[in-house]
Design a protein around this nucleic acid. Structure first.
Lengths: 156, 156
DNA sequence: CAAAAATATTTTACGTGTAAACAATATTTG
DNA sequence: CAAATATTGTTTACACGTAAAATATTTTTG
């Protein structure tokens, strides 16, 4: 599980990447692959996919959020949102509600089971014991986070 | 094309992400989505997928590289590598060579057509006119790149 | 050296996420 | 208000990438 076992330091040293090694696009994709590897190392058993905890987390913070708003906030496409929310509903983690004020939309909130799931997995996701490890100092990690937020167009 | 047209600043302001907004895993995924959106805005017409130019670029810099070494360097899985290289071959961009020294392996090099393709698309990928735009200053972008390299385990 | 283990790639079957078309409801406009 | 347009979510068909098993070759080991 996780990183391809054949990944040797050799590939990093022997292969000449040229300017690609400075490309933000390339570096971001590699970082993303690393995050997913680490995610599955930690959550492979929980039958949880990347993004799913984030959805539940944001429902926890914003009870009754509209499905489309959640999709936008997490950069998840509506079609995918539908499938995942339906599975959450089948698993009893999430409740869908069609409001009378706008019967096209769907409001989402966690069930008690969903709240328990979030509470149980929070420590593995956010904070001290997060799944995502690296060799950056605390200060470097904070700088990286700040620059990524700016890159992403969050904050002013 | 590109970003979901329904993405409003509203989603950024109205939705409370809590600690998720500080999570490197989340920020990296969002950044990756942004990169891909920008990629398709620029290359949608060229019938080129993210990662494909990188493969050709590294073949250009490392003629005769072993297929597996290329896969490791770019964090691309072998199964996917096989498919893509075969398509390159069908398109006449890449030449596969089985060396007598180890007839399990495959050596890759660009054809003249492949070299021309790389030369033509290089400006849109790397350097001044790259597809990947953002609001970071030059210095911030350099810092971001440096931190990502460290995060990825390149260098140091 | 023959059998076992390791390596490099390919094949097959599948899971995740997406675009495009669709359906239902709400809003705007003439 | 009726028709046209916009919004919200769902369905369908498909593309991309992957895990696991298979294939072919090379290396190791008893």
């Amino acid at each position: 599980m996780g990183q391809d076992p054949r990944l040797t330091p050799q590939a990093i040293e022997d292969v000449d990447l040229g300017d690609l090694g400075q490309s933000l696009g390339f570096l971001l994709r590699v970082a993303q692959v690393r995050v997913y590897d680490q995610f599955y190392d930690r959550f492979g058993d929980e039958d949880l996919r990347p993004g799913e905890f984030s959805m539940l987390w944001v429902m926890h913070r914003n009870p009754g959020i509209k499905q489309g708003m959640l999709a936008q906030a997490l950069r998840i496409k509506p079609a995918h949102m539908t499938k995942t929310v339906r599975r959450f509903e089948d698993n009893g983690l999430v409740e869908r509600q069609i409001p009378d004020s706008d019967r096209r939309s769907v409001l989402l909130r966690l069930t008690d089971k969903g709240e328990a799931f979030v509470a149980r997995n929070r420590p593995n996701f956010l904070g001290e014991n997060a799944y995502n490890t690296h060799d950056l100092s605390e200060e470097e990690a904070a700088t990286l986070a700040r620059l990524l937020r700016k890159y992403n167009g969050f904050e002013g």
